[in-house]
Design a protein around this nucleic acid. Sequence first.
DNA 1: TCTATATTCAACCATATGGTTGAATATAGT
DNA 2: ACTATATTCAACCATATGGTTGAATATAGA
Lengths: 119, 119
Amino acid sequence: MVEYSSKLLDRTFGALADPTRRRILAQLAKGEECVTDLARPYAMSLAAVSKHLIVLERAGLVKRRRDGRVHSMRLEAKPMREAQAWIDRYREFWEGNLDQFEKYLDKLQTKETKHDDDK
Amino acid sequence: MVEYSSKLLDRTFGALADPTRRRILAQLAKGEECVTDLARPYAMSLAAVSKHLIVLERAGLVKRRRDGRVHSMRLEAKPMREAQAWIDRYREFWEGNLDQFEKYLDKLQTKETKHDDDK
DNA sequence: TCTATATTCAACCATATGGTTGAATATAGT
DNA sequence: ACTATATTCAACCATATGGTTGAATATAGA
């Protein structure tokens, strides 16, 4: 039986499934920003934002650079590219332009397990 | 900026954040299928697959048609299209010209307002 | 050194996921 | 009516999210 599990894809989609995290990604699209600045627009506590950032980090969607006590977060595009690729290929298959979606999924899985260092 | 319906996106991305559900969607891309047939490839119980289908249904990604005791599931395109649109949109910021342009403007503004110290 | 700032950690709470098993419900077939 | 099949429901369990507050840690700056 083919294994479709991909923890990175799970985490990427999971990270996108929250409006605060999507908004944080939009903020970071303008450039690197530190935790306190990122947290400013939100009503929630700094610790809550910190936890969102950890979720984004575990998904590989952002990277952290420590500069003294300040943690600067920046975007990392690769996991998003793979999420997009999943949806793109899925829709092509669905719409009849692809006939071997399962083979594609196998390939994606093999590629992703190489970077799946966590857990 | 485009306003994306938050709850629907939450549920759509949330529904995609599980390998079993992604695989179910891939199965359904081949055409309508009933719950028992969908559940056949999985080691888990039928009730577990049933719950996954409810998650997909709540995200609007599949629709259910009852034909006697048999429930046939079929794909629904709209939520997936919106998820794709979200990713497409933000990748334009992350990797495209708009991102570069905004960075350029920010840097230009910094140079114009601060003459003596660059950070 | 002393104090303020940046950030996480720890403990807690409520709710959602992801799975189980066994019972309930609805319908098909005989 | 009886039995088998299709599916969900209910109760339960373990873990993850999404938030809180207060303490801990690390560093910056006087």
